[in-house]
Amino acid sequence: MDEAGSTRHLHDALGTLIDAGLIPRQPLAPLTHLLSGAMNEAALWLATSTDPVDLGDTSAALRHLLDSLRAPTEPRPRRGPARPATIRYPGSTPEPHGAQPPHE
């Protein structure tokens, strides 16, 4: 794949992610070139690296970089009312959900 083709594919993929709301809306051309440049530089560096750990470290760094682009997500609403916590003491049996323990 040539440089123009890979840049076009990255541009299209980023555009799809932005349209889907997975990445915040932002100027697409600079984002494409920044990411492309970073990944190309990493590939050139890895091509000359002699340390086998560098590939895993680079992969982890790229994953972290790409994860940081994600749009913030809203907390999911709870489904139904919250259940009260069941407190269990040694030697006791838990009360069925909704049952009141006897008052002493």
Rank of each mutant, 00 (worst) to 15 (best):
D2K: 02
E3C: 07
G5H: 04
G5M: 01
S6N: 07
S6P: 02
T7V: 11
T7Q: 15
R8S: 12
H9F: 08
L10C: 10
H11I: 09
T16V: 08
T16A: 02
L17P: 08
I18L: 08
D19L: 00
D19H: 03
A20K: 12
A20M: 01
G21Y: 02
L22W: 00
I23K: 06
R25K: 10
R25F: 01
Q26W: 00
P27A: 10
P27K: 08
L28M: 13
L31W: 07
T32F: 00
T32Q: 06
H33C: 03
L34T: 06
L35P: 04
L35I: 09
L35F: 04
A38H: 03
A38D: 07
M39V: 07
N40R: 08
N40V: 00
A42N: 06
A43Y: 07
A43L: 12
A43R: 13
L44H: 11
L46S: 06
L46Y: 13
A47T: 08
A47F: 04
T48P: 03
T50G: 15
D51Y: 04
D51C: 02
V53F: 13
D54A: 14
L55K: 13
D57A: 06
T58G: 13
S59D: 14
A61S: 03
A61D: 13
R63W: 14
R63P: 00
R63M: 13
R63E: 11
H64Y: 01
H64P: 15
H64R: 06
L65H: 00
S68L: 06
L69H: 14
R70A: 11
R70N: 10
R70V: 09
A71D: 03
P72R: 04
T73K: 11
T73I: 11
E74D: 11
P75D: 15
P75Q: 12
R76Y: 12
R76I: 13
R78D: 12
R79F: 11
R79L: 15
R79N: 07
R79K: 10
G80K: 02
P81D: 08
A82E: 04
A82I: 12
A82D: 04
R83F: 09
R83L: 07
R83E: 13
P84V: 06
A85R: 14
A85T: 06
T86L: 05
I87M: 10
R88W: 02
R88H: 05
Y89E: 09
P90E: 00
G91H: 03
G91N: 04
G91Y: 03
T93G: 08
E95P: 04
P96R: 10
H97W: 08
A99H: 05
A99K: 12
P101I: 05
P101F: 15
P101K: 05
E104T: 10
